[in-house]
Simulated assay, not measured.
Amino acid sequence: MTGIFQANRALLFFLTLAVLIALSSVVVVDENEQVVIERLGQPVRVINRFNPTGASGAGVVLKLPFIEQAVHLGRGLKGYSAGAQKVRSADGQDLLVDTDVTYRIIDPVRLVARLGSTAKLDAELASALPAMLGARLGPLSAAAIALPGNGGAAQLLRGDLDARARDLGVQVIDLRIGRVMPGETALQMTYEIMQARHLREVDAISAEQIASARQTRAQVAAQAAAILQDSAGKDPEFYDFFRAMRSYTYVFENPDAKNPPTIVIPPNSSYLRHFNGQ
């Protein structure tokens, strides 16, 4: 067995090498991608390049093994989102702006020459956006920035970013400014204003309630005094009894007090005549 292996070792080596060469000579190109073939680091041709007519060159493509390399790029629309970009409006408000960008690679050779692949493309767009947002949105008021279309600034921004992206072989199809929110400082100021307004409203409601309660108590006291005065004229004996009961309440109102009052009076005192049934 060992002898057979030794005899055919060279054949196995050449078969393995032939398989590796065959695999490195074939590139499978999907319909949704375009491929740049590089020879010793220089682009030589593009497979399935984007075409507005929709023509496709996808399939199996041959290349020189080990000498040529295939760089795969997207062929369709791609999206990039930049969230919470800081912008200061013309009226001095700090805003956080979300931006959504839709783009397509239209010159894959240029993109590969500039960036090598798509890995750095989003970073390039992200680095260009803040200055463009400040230039286009800064002259506008916060209210204008928050309007649909952002006072026409979104279209101008798309043109600015597209001009920058064309240098990378990319076309910016659409740019939309999404959520526009106050910055942290503005949010804190808004919260403090709302809190102060809430406290003022609570104080106003409390003062109104206190005044209403005092007025109600005064009305009740006046009605009670009128009733007592009326009853004193109609039934003097009952009024005398009521006065005695109220005096007992004032004296012994708090039986749990540490030093409750003590009254020493004889049993036949007129003060106790109501308890004696007199």
Rank of each mutant, 00 (worst) to 15 (best):
I21G: 03
S24L: 12
V26D: 04
V27G: 01
V27N: 09
V28G: 04
V28F: 12
V29Q: 11
E31Y: 11
E31S: 10
N32P: 06
Q34H: 08
Q34C: 15
V35C: 07
E38D: 06
E38W: 00
L40V: 10
G41D: 09
G41N: 05
G41Y: 08
G41A: 09
Q42K: 15
Q42L: 14
P43Y: 04
P43K: 07
P43H: 06
P43E: 04
P43G: 08
P43D: 09
R45Y: 02
V46P: 01
I47F: 13
N48T: 02
R49C: 01
R49Y: 00
R49F: 00
N51C: 10
T53H: 08
T53E: 14
A55K: 10
A55H: 07
S56Y: 04
S56H: 05
G57Y: 02
A58I: 00
A58L: 01
A58S: 03
G59H: 07
G59L: 08
G59S: 10
V60S: 05
K63T: 08
P65G: 10
F66P: 05
F66A: 12
E68Y: 07
Q69E: 12
Q69N: 13
V71D: 00
H72I: 14
L73R: 00
G74Y: 03
R75D: 03
G79A: 11
G79K: 11
G79V: 06
Y80I: 09
Y80S: 13
Y80K: 08
Y80Q: 12
A82G: 10
A82Q: 12
A82N: 10
G83I: 10
G83K: 13
G83T: 13
A84N: 14
A84F: 07
K86A: 15
V87M: 02
V87G: 01
G92H: 08
Q93L: 15
Q93I: 15
D94G: 03
D94S: 08
L95H: 01
L95D: 00
V97E: 00
V97P: 01
T99I: 14
Y103Q: 01
Y103V: 00
V109T: 05
R110E: 11
L111F: 03
L111Q: 01
V112F: 05
V112Q: 01
A113I: 09
R114W: 06
R114L: 14
L115V: 02
